[in-house]
């Protein structure tokens, strides 16, 4: 009897283990370049984008307004809402149920908990500058850049504590030379500092980015971390890097023609 019970227990465990394995392999997309199993998911843009798709809506910013389009009928989008954001609005980025909008004078955080009706949560003002944003639950990273279209004379990475999202708090400032877009993946922040290179920061301590390497030889404007690949917008084209080891990133290909 005891042997039978033991065998039953082993069988149950075995079946449970099989079940787990099946579940895991079913969920795991495995290919390094695919985020999901369905064809109807949205892709990924860079931090310089004015368009983004999230929660079955297309969000777009021009120089002043945020437009919300419902993609319930994806082939025939319908504009469902317009927000007046500010002036010199440049970029838009989404993270979960929030939109982060960069402008020449501020970073705006909007809630899209109601996806058809974005509502302003918080604003972080800064000196006049162009600014793309990337963010996650608790931190936002913003580059500010001086120059003829942007005005001002600051070139830096601003780090914002978003724990109180209604009042983003500037937690750190790191000087840069001529920064443009950024990419965020796990505990690495990639910052495009134009001709001064692609700067790779470790952000295990989110408010204290630590520069671990710089890739030079190109002028970097934006980058998208995509699985183990970093896709960069460079002067005249694109460069693709293997970022399996972020401290030692390796060039895969350059596209200039």
């Amino acid at each position: 009897m005891q042997i039978l019970t033991a065998m039953r227990k082993i069988c149950s465990l075995g079946i449970a283990a099989c079940g787990m394995l099946l579940l895991l392999t079913g969920l795991c997309s495995c290919s390094k370049d695919r985020d999901a199993l369905t064809e109807d998911t949205a892709g990924t843009g860079g931090s310089l984008a004015r368009f983004t798709i999230a929660l079955n809506h297309l969000y777009a910013v021009d120089h002043q307004l945020l437009y919300t389009f419902s993609l319930a009928d994806a082939r025939n989008p319908v504009k469902v809402f317009t927000n007046e954001v500010g002036f010199d609005v440049e970029t838009i980025y989404t993270w979960k149920d929030k939109l982060f909008i960069g402008s020449g004078t501020a970073m705006y955080v909007y809630s899209i908990a109601d996806p058809g009706r974005p509502s302003l949560l918080g604003t972080a003002l800064h000196t006049r500058a162009c600014d793309p944003v990337v963010a996650n639950d608790s931190v936002a990273y913003v580059t500010v850049r001086s120059g003829s279209n942007c005005g001002g004379n600051v070139n830096a990475l601003y780090v914002y504590d978003l724990k109180d999202v209604l009042q983003p708090r500037q937690a750190n400032v790191i000087n840069l030379q001529n920064p443009y877009g950024l990419g965020l993946k796990d505990s690495t922040l990639y910052v495009c500092d134009a001709a001064y290179g692609l700067k790779v920061f470790r952000i295990s301590e989110a408010y204290y980015p630590l520069l671990v390497s710089t890739v030079t030889g190109e002028t970097f404007y934006d980058c998208i971390p995509y699985g183990n690949l970093l896709i960069c917008m460079i002067e005249g084209g694109m460069a693709l890097y293997d970022i399996s080891d972020p401290a030692h990133i390796k060039l895969e290909a350059k596209i200039r023609e």
Partner: peptide, 14 residues
């Protein structure tokens, strides 16, 4: 390629 503008990726398409 001339100007090297904004980038976007989905699936295996860049």
């Amino acid at each position: 390629l001339a100007s090297g503008g904004k980038i976007y990726v989905t699936g295996q398409d860049l």
